[in-house]
């Protein structure tokens, strides 16, 4: 009896903590939705700044997501399957941006693309990264890559190498095996990685601000719109961009829940 009441007490404290924290978060979302008048939101949505920002956000996020998947899939596969010199160090470096503040990542990229031979070389062949739309994509790419790679890595890790050996024993090369067996088996993890990469790209703020400059109607993505309008005191515009970002987050969580579960 005594032990049971202690357990119930502890259980209740845990549950109450969860409920409380969820409630506070939920109230803040309600404020975002309920405070502005619908008219204000519609007007903000129609403004050329918001249309520009939404377009740039979606297009840049789409491009960076595609790049993340093209680079991240073979990279995560290599880390999950093969052992090679310096693997642990590489894994740490690739994970670092998750723990690193975005502004620091942005600054590091700004220095790399601005002041080094690499930056000059790119500029010579006509690719300007710093304070441009390319910079937006690059900033989003590096911010989203580690998240997608973690997802892909753990997905490949859970697929036994036995499937691959069986496929190869039946005559398929390692690349054919990857395409016909490993990738289809990793399907749900790949979709989850895709969604996470897109959501992180859409929400990237600090890195975009530092590397691409956050210039009005030039390198202005939704988080930048929120920030700029807050500083002008234009709450309607700020809240509208916040709502759009919230929408993306909700869709992301839903998609991850739906596809992220290990079905294999």
């Amino acid at each position: 009896m005594g032990i049971q009441s202690v357990q119930i007490g502890f259980k209740h404290i845990c549950i109450m903590t969860t409920v409380l924290i969820a409630l506070i978060l939920f109230l803040s979302f309600i404020c975002l939705i309920a405070l502005p008048s619908p008219k204000e939101i519609i007007e903000s949505l129609k403004s050329s700044e918001m249309i520009f920002s939404l377009k740039l956000t979606l297009i840049s996020a789409l491009i960076s997501t595609i790049l993340v998947m093209i680079v991240g899939t073979p990279a995560a596969y290599a880390l999950a399957r093969f052992s090679f010199f310096g693997k642990r160090l590489i894994m740490t470096i690739l994970d670092l941006p998750i723990a690193m503040p975005e502004v620091v990542l942005g600054l590091a990229l700004l220095l790399l693309f601005g002041r080094t031979p690499l930056g000059t070389l790119l500029e010579d062949i006509g690719i300007r990264v710093v304070f441009t739309k390319i910079g937006v994509v690059i900033a989003e790419f590096f911010t989203a890559l580690p998240y997608a790679m973690r997802m892909l890595y753990s997905t490949f890790e859970t697929i036994s190498t036995r499937y691959e050996l069986v496929a190869r024993s039946l005559g398929y090369s390692s690349f054919e095996t990857f395409m016909k067996v490993t990738l289809p088996m990793a399907r749900s993890g790949i979709i989850a990685a895709l969604v996470i990469a897109f959501a992180r790209s859409v929400g990237t703020f600090g890195t975009v601000l530092i590397l691409a400059g956050g210039t009005y109607m030039v390198t202005e993505t939704l988080p930048v719109t929120l920030y700029l309008n807050m500083s002008y005191g234009n709450l309607g515009m700020a809240i509208t961009s916040g709502l759009l970002l919230l929408g993306v987050s909700f869709i992301t969580i839903y998609m991850v829940e739906k596809f992220g579960g290990r079905k294999i």
Partner: peptide, 30 residues
């Protein structure tokens, strides 16, 4: 030689059937 050039079949304890294919496609794979 790599495994695909050896013409050696392998059967595991946990079967290792490809879950995204039907039984027919599994058998027809090779």
């Amino acid at each position: 030689l790599p495994p695909e050039k050896r013409n050696i079949g392998i059967v595991y304890q946990d079967y290792a059937l490809f879950p995204h294919m039907t039984v027919f496609d599994n058998i027809a794979f090779g």
